[in-house]
């Protein structure tokens, strides 16, 4: 019990939203309307996360990730359910909770916009009452991991988005929090910076044993950082477990890239596509046409690829094939789809 840094049981949060009508008179009527409906942002979530874990927090847009994080940081109060972060109930004791957590919202910054980075760090040092020794140690550690000394004198507004995000992440670790919430830290970054961000998060987690909850849409983040993932949709958890296990579950799915003759006309391929989906509707989950390629996802345990190829060959000549295992991205897509059926 003690080593569970995050403990949530049957958490619910519904938002009351006014039904908006269309047009001018609709808007006028809205002024006097009390016609509300409820949005189930978080609908009975339970989870436990231990010290030092990095957990990927996934879900489509509007699934309730940000609401959950806001409840964990004490900004929002749940309608019902239990929540303990480091043993503190965040909405009851926001300030005590705030001392033990770090937060990064990818699209916002907690740093002073016009001030050099080091000034922001010094202000944070006071806000979190960090002692001189810890502060120095952390700056040295940051230097060792990522080498940002050249940025210290640069105002935030002059930094590139990537530099700013790196600094924001460092800032959230400055006071040695037990838990850090990262809400889409790699959004809008180029591949090189994304790599740096991942390296930074990984090192900080390893060296400080900080528990990290990483909300993201980037599956490369998940693969690089998170052994365990929690997937939510429409406010409910649809998967909580190891990424590997999930992949194992969908291992049956394979992809085949089939090249047909260059001179096959598009219409014929479209017809073929609907025939394929009709004839093998249980085993082929997806089929897309790209130039002279057919990209097919199918369950390999239930059908032999050869059968599909034979079928296709009856209509158009098959020139080349290439098969691959399913990617994380598609696994997540499949699980989203599965839960919505």
């Amino acid at each position: 019990m003690v080593d569970k840094v995050i403990r949530i049981n049957n958490l619910r949060k519904y938002f009351k939203v006014l039904k908006r009508r269309e047009g001018f008179w609709g808007t006028v009527k809205d002024l006097f309307s009390s016609d509300y409906f409820y949005v189930k942002a978080v609908d009975g979530i339970s989870m436990e996360i231990s010290e030092g874990e990095i957990v990927g927090f996934l879900g489509p847009n509007g699934a309730g990730k940000s609401t959950t994080i806001k409840i964990m940081t004490g900004v929002l109060e749940p309608d019902s359910g239990e929540i303990y972060i480091n043993g503190v109930i965040p909405y009851k004791d926001r300030i005590r909770n705030a001392k033990n957590i770090g937060v990064v919202f990818g699209q916002r910054t907690q740093l002073w916009w016009s001030l050099p980075l080091i000034e922001s760090f010094k202000i944070l040092k006071e806000i979190y009452e960090i002692d001189e020794k810890t502060f120095k140690e952390n700056l040295e550690l940051f230097e060792e991991i990522i080498g940002i000394e050249t940025l210290y004198k640069k105002p935030i507004r002059q930094m590139s988005l990537g530099q700013r995000v790196l600094c924001d992440i460092l800032a959230s670790f400055l006071h040695n929090p037990k838990v850090v919430f990262l809400d889409e830290p790699t959004i809008g970054l180029d591949i090189l910076i994304k790599d740096k961000v991942r390296k930074l998060i990984k090192e900080l987690n390893k060296m400080k044993k900080t528990t990290i909850l990483l909300a993201t849409h980037d599956m490369n983040d998940v693969e690089a950082l998170c052994p365990r993932i929690i997937v939510i949709d429409k406010g409910k958890i649809i998967y909580d477990g190891l990424l590997e296990d999930l992949k194992e579950r969908f291992k049956a799915y394979r992809k085949a890239k089939i090249r047909v003759g260059d001179d096959v006309d598009e219409l014929k391929l479209v017809n073929l596509r609907s025939l394929l989906l009709g004839n093998f509707n249980d085993v082929i989950s997806d089929c897309e046409i790209k130039a002279s390629f057919l990209n097919i996802s199918f369950k390999k345990q239930e059908i032999n690829l050869l059968e599909i190829l034979k079928f296709i060959n009856n209509f158009v000549p098959v020139e080349d094939i290439h098969t691959e295992d399913i990617q994380t991205e598609e696994v997540i897509k499949l699980i989203y789809e599965e839960s919505r059926k």
Binding site: K70, A98, I101, V103, R108, T109, Q110, I127
Partner: peptide, 8 residues
């Protein structure tokens, strides 16, 4: 939200 996640 950013301010509210700080001990202030």
């Amino acid at each position: 939200s950013i301010i509210l996640t700080k001990p202030l």
